[in-house]
């Protein structure tokens, strides 16, 4: 039976990992390739790189980072952030990434998902959804532009639409829980997991190993992603996996 996946996420800006990474034993804690190798050795099942470069040069540097990472890493990795076109996807995938993740650009132009899925196969196209509970909507609302702009979409409807268009996976971030470290948004995660036929990665809110357990059981997620708790060594991938195994979750 397939295992639940634990996925560390790295924010990369102009070719360097940013947003606080505390790895004293690494030669260079800002080097994406070194961090990727570190997490691979710790047992990470997959990695996500989020490119938050603002400049054109930063984007070009990202391609080099992807190439170097692909050359060193023997686990799959996804690259997201600023992917606006089929050309962007081509550049990232040709550089050796296994999947690309689309967010704002796909909401502005849903055809991008269909195009990517047709050209590269569904398994390469991840749709990232940022969602936040909305009283007026009585449901979770999808946001674009890094959570700054609300859309008309309910998360569950957009997830279904993305799957219909051929996305192979949903990366679901709860804006309510993100950074709060008191657990994944289980209701949202479960709603989406039950609504779509592709794997769902829960994101936002991981504070300890048991939060992952909840995401996989109550939230019915297929994978769970976290950033700061791994970067700040509040826990490790290995510790989370040991804990999950101890609680009977199927883990590599």
């Amino acid at each position: 039976m397939i295992t639940k996946r634990i996925i560390p996420c790295l924010d990369v800006k102009e070719g360097r990992v940013v947003k606080g990474v505390q790895f004293v034993e690494l030669r260079d804690a800002g080097d994406p390739v070194e961090l990727a190798k570190f997490y691979d050795e710790e047992g990470a099942d997959e990695l996500v790189f989020l490119d938050i470069s603002a400049s054109h040069e930063g984007r070009k540097t990202m391609i080099e980072v992807v190439e170097q990472t692909a050359a060193e890493l023997a686990i799959p990795f996804t690259v997201g952030g600023g992917i606006n076109s089929l050309e962007d996807m081509k550049a990232i995938l040709r550089a050796g990434a296994d999947k690309v993740s689309v967010n704002t650009a796909a909401l502005l132009n849903p055809h991008l998902i269909s195009e990517g899925a047709l050209y590269f196969g569904s398994q390469c196209i991840v749709t990232a959804i940022d969602a936040k509970y909305d009283e007026a909507l009585g449901s979770y609302r999808v946001y674009t532009h890094g959570g700054r702009k609300p859309t008309e979409w309910k998360a569950v409807d957009w997830a279904k639409e993305a799957v219909k268009r051929g996305t192979g996976e949903i990366l679901l971030t709860s804006m309510d829980q993100d950074g709060a470290k008191n657990g994944f948004e289980l209701e949202l995660t479960r709603q989406i997991s039950e609504a779509v036929s592709v794997p769902v990665i829960a994101s936002g809110g991981a504070g300890n190993a048991d939060h992952f357990y909840d995401a996989f059981t109550e939230g019915k997620a297929d994978a769970a992603l976290a950033a700061s708790i791994f970067h700040y060594k509040e826990t490790s991938v290995k510790e989370v996996k040991d804990r999950l195994k101890g609680r009977g979750v199927n883990i590599r």
């Binding site: 039976m1 397939i2 295992t3 996946r5 099942d45 569904s122 398994q123 192979g168 996976e169 036929s197 592709v198 794997p199 297929d222 994978a223 590599r252």
Partner: peptide, 14 residues
């Protein structure tokens, strides 16, 4: 076969 399991079969398996 589609059913309880998601397709594609994606991830680590033993």
């Amino acid at each position: 076969p589609e059913g309880k399991l998601k397709v594609p079969h994606m991830g680590w398996n033993q």
